[in-house]
Design a protein around this nucleic acid. Structure first.
Length: 502
RNA sequence: GGCCCAUUCGUCUAGCGGACUAGGACGCCGCCCUCUCAAGGCGGAGAUCGCGGGUUCGAACCCCGCAUGGGCCA
């Protein structure tokens, strides 16, 4: 049997890193097993739907390179609440559609009906007031609050199907069930812990429990890899499969991702405002998708067996991935390590490719980019970038008319105004006619100049650096000068001299 | 409150009964390299394997309690 897995997010408007990680593991597992990766939109809970939610999911997955084999087509996307439709909308489709939960409500209702007929579920018309009363009585007696199964033993027809009611699953009154998790092993739960939970709400919509199980079955899902927060409801899900007489898929519950502090689930509210949580934020801050993907693969998973590698090409990741090496313990999200990894990926990029990726970040920052200069400086800033957006600050001096050096920085440590002026003047003269106008020969020339002046290169270069780039910390000086061009360099050297003299 | 899951350096992890003087990575510290900043190289500190009991000739590894953290439900 071929493996079929699914990623089934709610279109809430954002794709959270936790969700992305779940998607990644599903995708990796599918690739590894030569299986099918399915995208399904779980939009049944109307409250959680926000316009643009589908888009956030689609773009997030595509950005990371997680293409699905089956999923919503354009027509059903258009039918969906909110009339989701945009130019880049995916049109994947597949034989087990629709892949949008709200479009299957009829199917879910029929499924509930089927269970009623089988005697595995029943209609319940208990009012909210009665339910509250029962709950309070239980509280007063310090019992577990749960539905008291009042309607379970009513005569057939006693609950009017045409009046508002819910449908509840008839949970076995005694005994226990053993559920299996691929990561944690067997878990036994006593039926007395479960109550007759609702599978169809009074508005006719299915609950998650019913809808997801029916859809998983309809789509012939073989492995459910989902967040660990679903583990407590696994017994209910087994019960639903049993009620229908279906064979349940294999389940694997992935550990949650915790805040960097390790306290509490990773969330926007708990994270420092600067910390990214949503996929779009990582993208906009200049993380490379391949770096985030590599990093995310390592939260909760490691190749194991003595393999200490951490940077993986995609095909290696697929090759090595295994559920057996998923760590069941929750893991804190380390921005430090992500930063390091992003830097590794940036340095591994060919320079022209890097320049291409940097370009949109400069444009977005309002920079008037001179492509030729960008191309020239890229190799010099490559090992200095943590994220792509760092390039804005690293290259700003190249794309403005003038810089405004700070006189205090201009006169470096151990220098005077006079000696600084002399250095700038000399620099101007050397650069004026220097050939070839390339970083290495320039550097050699200036090194001999420094030596002739009886100075170490560092202090000698400082006034030039500040004059040309406007700051004390910059990319390598001669690469910067070459990228800027002879004319502008000389103008800035003159400018700095004027600044000091005046 | 009930139930479920988890627990190895600050963090991510390797480890599946003897190979552990517990390995690697991020971060941190130091040195080297060096035109600033990085990157890179080398080295260092950092874990009585949450605690207590068992099982065993032998336990980070198996079992039981407890504690703590997390999650779900209310």
């Amino acid at each position: 049997m071929t493996v079929r897995v699914r990623f089934a997010p709610s279109p809430t408007g954002f794709l959270h890193v936790g969700g992305l990680r779940t998607a990644l593991f599903n995708w990796l597992f599918a690739q590894k097993m030569g299986g099918t990766f399915i995208l399904r939109l779980e939009d049944t809970d109307q409250k959680r739907y926000t316009p643009g939610g589908v888009r956030a999911i689609v773009e997030g997955l595509q950005w990371l390179g997680l293409q699905w084999n089956e999923g919503p087509d354009k027509a059903s996307l258009r039918q969906m609440q909110g009339d989701e439709d945009w130019a880049g909308a995916p049109d994947v489709g597949g034989p087990y559609g629709p892949y949008i939960q709200s479009l299957k409500v009829k199917r879910h209702q029929a499924a509930a009906q089927e269970l009623i007929e089988k005697g595995m579920a029943y209609r319940c018309d208990c009012t909210a007031e009665r339910l509250a009363q029962v709950r309070e009585g239980q509280k007063a007696r310090k019992e577990q609050t749960r539905y008291d199964r009042h309607c379970r033993f009513k005569q057939p027809g006693e609950v009017d199907p045409n009046q508002p009611h819910v449908v509840r699953l008839a949970v076995p009154l005694e005994g226990s069930t053993t559920v299996h998790d691929l990561i944690r092993g067997e878990i036994t739960v006593d039926y007395s812990q479960l109550d007759d939970f609702v599978i169809l709400k009074s508005d006719g919509f299915p609950t998650y429990h019913l809808a997801a199980m029916v859809d998983d079955h309809d789509m012939q899902i073989t492995h459910v890899l989902r967040g660990d927060e679903w583990l407590p409801s696994l017994p209910r899900h087994y019960l639903i499969y049993q009620a229908f007489g279906w064979e349940p898929p294999a389940f694997a519950h992935l550990p949650v991702i915790l805040n960097p502090s390790g306290k509490g689930k990773m969330s926007k509210r708990k994270a420092t405002s600067a910390d990214a949580v949503f996929v779009t934020e990582f993208r906009d801050e200049g993380y490379l998708p391949e770096a985030l993907r590599n990093f995310l693969a390592l939260v909760g998973w490691a190749p194991g067996s003595g393999n200490e590698q951490e940077i993986f090409a995609l095909d290696e990741l697929i090759q090595l991935f295994s559920l057996a090496h998923v760590n069941p313990a929750p893991a804190a999200f380390s921005y430090d390590k992500l930063d390091w990894m992003n830097g590794m990926y940036i340095r591994a990029l060919p320079a022209d490719e890097l320049a291409k990726r940097i370009y949109p970040f400069l444009i977005k920052a309002g920079v008037e980019v001179d492509t030729e200069r960008l191309l020239k400086i890229t190799p010099d800033i490559q090992e200095r970038l943590v994220t792509l957006s760092d390039a804005v600050e690293a290259t700003d001096f190249l794309f403005v008319e003038d810089v405004s050096p700070n006189p205090v920085q201009l006169i470096g440590k151990g220098l005077t105004k006079e000696s600084t002026l002399a250095i700038l003047k000399q620099a101007e003269q050397i650069i004026d006619a220097f050939e070839p106008f390339e970083a290495e020969p320039l550097e050699l020339a200036f090194r001999s100049a420094a030596e002739a002046a009886g100075m170490k290169p560092g202090p000698f270069f400082t006034p030039m650096r500040v004059a040309v780039t406007g700051k004390a910390v910059s990319p390598p000086l001669f690469g910067s000068i070459v990228a800027l061009g002879r004319e502008k360099t000389i103008a800035r050297l003159k400018n700095a001299q004027q600044l000091l003299a005046g």
